Amino acid sequence: MPFFAIAFPVFDPVAVAIGPFAIRWYALAYIAGILLGWLYARMLLQRERLWGGPAPITPVQFDDFILWVTIGIILGGRTGYVLFYNLDFFITHPAEIFELWKGGMSFHGGFMGCVVAVALFGWKRNVSIASLGDITCAVGPIGLFLGRIANFINGELWGRPADDTVPWAMVFPHAGPLPRHPSQLYEAGLEGIVLFLILALMIRAGALKRPGLIIGAFLTFYGLARITGEFFREPDPQLGFLWGGLTMGMLLSVPMVIAGIVVMLLARRAKRAPQSTSLPAGSSEATK
């Protein structure tokens, strides 16, 4: 055990309380993630250079999509948590499935909810599902970063016990006396900052001109980041370690990595989106 550890900065999980009405940091992280992601998405959609011409989705269409994806995140995240992490409990306490304020969301479930929202919206509004998925994945790390910070503020999803080589280990209030890895911050860095930078650099290099490429990159690099973070994160107590020391987070992320590589290869082989060319108004090509 380390000879010293950093004291965990205990936060009040409630950010604002007015009488019986309380807003928690976790809820604010979701709200801020959606708002900041919406603003970043609008910025990307307005830059024709990134798309090789006008974006296949208008900012107004994406404004309408925000409600769809918000519902997808919430329903998918909760459903994933119920099915993947605590099914036995919710079978015996079904009413608590709807008590979202008690916590319990799964990223993998939330991602599947996003997939459904993207597919349904793209089909209903006749917009490119691949490009809509690209822009949604491009902004995803913003919400992931804020969500992990909220996990840290709540003192939940803490890391495994640390040894003497980890001077930044912390004693979490509800995790016993052992200093532990602040795995929430590791994940915020990997799933949030690093993933955002990778996708931003790919977008700058022209990835949005190949629909589906950002989706594949998100799946691949998120999966790798999550698997890495799971080596430092304490498994959920109701599940513990699974086969060979694997965790549920690792098992759910492996298919993401495989699927991501396949999607990237398919996107790279697909025909590149045509670039627009500015032509004189009176030319024959401009009036076709």
Score class of each variant (00 low, 15 high):
240 G>H: 14
231 F>A: 08
251 L>S: 03
245 G>V: 12
225 A>F: 10
203 I>R: 02
178 L>Y: 01
169 A>T: 06
229 G>P: 06
202 M>G: 01
172 F>Q: 06
247 T>D: 03
223 G>L: 06
210 R>E: 04
235 P>I: 08
231 F>G: 07
208 L>V: 03
231 F>W: 14
253 S>T: 03
200 A>Q: 06
185 L>S: 00
241 F>D: 08
202 M>I: 02
170 M>A: 12
201 L>M: 13
188 A>L: 01
260 G>C: 10
187 E>I: 01
249 G>P: 10
245 G>F: 13
240 G>L: 14
231 F>V: 07
226 R>F: 09
241 F>H: 14
177 P>E: 04
250 M>I: 04
167 P>Q: 08
222 Y>A: 04
234 E>P: 09
188 A>K: 05
264 M>D: 01
254 V>P: 02
231 F>I: 09
221 F>Q: 11
217 A>L: 08
257 V>W: 09
178 L>R: 05
224 L>R: 04
216 G>R: 12
232 F>L: 15
170 M>E: 11
237 P>D: 13
210 R>H: 07
248 M>H: 04
178 L>M: 05
174 H>R: 14
171 V>C: 09
243 W>G: 12
169 A>R: 07
262 V>P: 02
241 F>P: 04
224 L>V: 15
189 G>M: 03
232 F>N: 11
261 I>H: 11
225 A>Q: 04
217 A>H: 07
191 E>Y: 04
238 Q>W: 03
234 E>H: 12
228 T>L: 07
209 K>T: 07
211 P>S: 11
190 L>T: 01
211 P>R: 14
201 L>I: 13
235 P>T: 10
174 H>M: 11
207 A>D: 02
259 A>L: 15
175 A>N: 08
173 P>I: 04
209 K>H: 01
196 F>Q: 11
243 W>K: 12
198 I>E: 08
235 P>E: 12
256 M>A: 14
263 V>M: 05
194 V>G: 09
174 H>Y: 10
225 A>H: 05
259 A>K: 01
228 T>Y: 02
192 G>T: 12
181 H>R: 00
209 K>N: 00
190 L>A: 03
221 F>R: 10
222 Y>E: 09
214 I>W: 08
213 L>R: 14
195 L>G: 05
229 G>N: 03
225 A>R: 03
228 T>S: 07
200 A>G: 00
255 P>C: 06
171 V>W: 13
207 A>S: 08
180 R>W: 00
245 G>E: 07
209 K>D: 00
203 I>N: 00
246 L>M: 15
238 Q>L: 15
192 G>H: 12
183 S>F: 00
196 F>S: 11
216 G>A: 11
244 G>T: 11
229 G>Q: 08
227 I>L: 08
186 Y>K: 00
216 G>T: 09
259 A>V: 13
194 V>S: 06
199 L>W: 05
174 H>V: 05
205 A>S: 10
183 S>Y: 00
220 T>N: 12
259 A>D: 09
173 P>Y: 11
195 L>C: 11
206 G>E: 02
